[in-house]
């Protein structure tokens, strides 16, 4: 499988387009708490600002998420990464890749950008410690060629955080 820093550049299918327009308009009415969509004219790439929840290790910190949608969204999961600098978190690599099952094998087309954001914030909020994954350097090096996190075979074998 070939890799590039952005996922497949194929244009969104009509179904994906309709669905994203719907998500966007619902987001504008009712955005998930702690998130701001940065307005662009690109439906296929969303940049979303995340503000750490009050009372957590990330309170008042601001990060940026980049969400790229594949041609067959929502059948296929979106690619969700933090634009570095990424939050220090045991499941977030310094290149912004996030180890969260719903972004990969556990994705379901009934999920939305909004529900993904809520899961992400909950993952951040429940972190007991600000640190990188233990294999951060090794992983980030392997991604040097710009591979997408969706091409990673993730293991989800730890349920502590």
């Amino acid at each position: 499988m070939t890799s590039s820093s952005s996922p497949s550049r194929k244009a969104l299918s009509k179904i994906a387009c309709n669905r994203l327009q719907k998500e966007l308009s619902e987001w504008q009415v009712n955005p998930p708490t702690g998130f701001k969509h940065k307005v662009t004219d690109n439906l296929q790439k969303w940049v979303i600002e995340v503000i750490g929840a009050p009372g957590t290790l990330y309170a008042n910190e601001t990060y940026q998420l980049q969400v790229d949608f594949p041609e067959h969204y929502p059948m296929e999961a979106p690619q969700v990464i933090f634009i570095p600098p990424a939050p220090l978190h045991p499941h977030i690599y310094s290149n912004g890749h996030i180890c969260l099952d719903i972004l990969y094998d556990s994705w379901s087309p009934a999920m939305t950008v909004s529900s993904v954001c809520i899961s992400l914030l909950s993952m951040l909020s429940s972190s007991p410690t600000k640190q990188r994954p233990t294999d951060n350097d090794r992983y980030v090096k392997k991604c040097k060629n710009g591979r997408s996190p969706k091409e990673t075979r993730w293991w989800f074998h730890d349920d502590k955080v």
Partner: peptide, 26 residues
Amino acid sequence: SSTNRRGRGRGRGWGHNVNRRKQNSQ
């Protein structure tokens, strides 16, 4: 569509295997 799933799937685990397509030994 959304509310039911809040918090679902959060922070489950980490680890990776970079050679996703080449390896199926799991």
